[in-house]
C-alpha cells in the first residue's frame, strides 16, 4: 500500500443529483497508485476526523481522480462547499480494493444508492465483460448510468418505487443472472441489507463475491483500529479493519 497526504486542486465540480456532487481532482501521484475500490480520506477545516470518500474514477494519463459523494452530514456538507479552483486535503489512495482478474469472462457489479460510485472504476477495468446493476430509491436518485454505458458495461437499473427501470431490488436481476450461470465474480457496494442479500445468493450459487463496506473511521491507514469489522478466516473470528484490510472484503469472510 502506497499513500500520500497533500493538497490537490479541484479541476471540475458538478452537481449530478439531489445533494450529490462529482469532483475531478488533479493528483498525479495518487492517481498513479490508485486501484478500483480504494478511497480518499478528506480533511475538513472544522472537524478533527477526516471523511472517507470512495474513488469513482481513476485517470492515470491525466493524473486525476473523480469522487462522487452525497451530503450525509455536516462534514460532507462542508466538502460540498468546495469549488473548482479550490484545493482539497487528501490522504490517499487508501484501502484494499476490488480484484481485477483478466481471466474473468463475465462479472456483475452491483451498486446501491451512494454505493454506486466505487463500482465505476471496476466497470472501466472489466469493460464489456461487466453487467452493472444499480439500485436507487426512485428515478430522481439515479446517477452514473451513462458513465457505466460508456465504460462498456451492460446496465440494469432498479428503483424501489418503480419510477425508473425494474420495480424492485438489485437482488432480483442478480438472481436471474446467477440462474443463467457463467458469472465469474460479483462485486458490490451499498446498504448492509443489500449486501447480505447479494452475499447469500452468491453463496448459494457458488459465485465468488466481494463487498465494499463502510464504518466510522479515524486514521484511515490501519493504525488506530477504529473501523472494526467482524470477519472470519479459517473458522477463526477476528476484527479486521475497514480502512486497511478493506473496504473490499471477500463476502465469505465477513460476518454480516
Amino acid at each position: 500500500m502506497k499513500y500520500t497526504q497533500g493538497k490537490y486542486l479541484i479541476i471540475d465540480k458538478k452537481a449530478i443529483g439531489c445533494e450529490i456532487y462529482s469532483f475531478e481532482i488533479s493528483c498525479p501521484e495518487v492517481a498513479a497508485a490508485a486501484v478500483p475500490g480504494q478511497f480518499v480520506h478528506i480533511r475538513i477545516g472544522s472537524f478533527v476526523l477526516r471523511r472517507p470518500i470512495s474513488i469513482c474514477g481513476i485517470d492515470k494519463e491525466k493524473g486525476t481522480l473523480r469522487i462522487v459523494f452525497e451530503i450525509r452530514g455536516e462534514g460532507t456538507a462542508e466538502i460540498a462547499q468546495l469549488n473548482k479552483g479550490d484545493v482539497v486535503d487528501m490522504l490517499a489512495p487508501l484501502g484494499h480494493g476490488f480484484t481485477v482478474d483478466e481471466s474473468f469472462k463475465k462479472v456483475v457489479l452491483i451498486g446501491g444508492g451512494i454505493g454506486t460510485p466505487p463500482m465505476l472504476p471496476l466497470a472501466k477495468a472489466y469493460g464489456n465483460k461487466a453487467v452493472a446493476i444499480s439500485g436507487f430509491r426512485n428515478s430522481s436518485a439515479v446517477i452514473l448510468q451513462e458513465d457505466f454505458k460508456s465504460a462498456g458495461a451492460e446496465t440494469i437499473l432498479c428503483t424501489d418505487d418503480g419510477s425508473a427501470g425494474i420495480h424492485g431490488f438489485v437482488t432480483q436481476p442478480l438472481a436471474e443472472l446467477a440462474e443463467k450461470g457463467g458469472i465469474d465474480a460479483v462485486f458490490a457496494c451499498g446498504p448492509m441489507g443489500m449486501l447480505k442479500g447479494i452475499a447469500s445468493i452468491c453463496k448459494e450459487k457458488g459465485i465468488y463475491c466481494e463487498i465494499s463496506l463502510e464504518e466510522r473511521m479515524a486514521c484511515g491507514i490501519g493504525a488506530c483500529l477504529g473501523c472494526a469489522c467482524r470477519t472470519k478466516r479459517n473458522d477463526e473470528e477476528y476484527f479486521a479493519h475497514v480502512c486497511k484490510d478493506g473496504p473490499v472484503f471477500n463476502a465469505e469472510e465477513v460476518i454480516l
Binding site: 478533527v48 476526523l49 466510522r216 483500529l225 477504529g226 469489522c229 476484527f239
Partner: peptide, 30 residues
Amino acid sequence: KGTTRHQRTGNIAPRIAETPAGMLNSVGLQ
C-alpha cells in the same frame, strides 16, 4: 499501542464518534 498479556479482540463497532473539536473512541484495547 496498548498491549496486554494475551491477544484482545476489542469492542464491536462503531468504535469512533465525532464530537465538537474532538472525538470519542472505544477500541477496547484490541
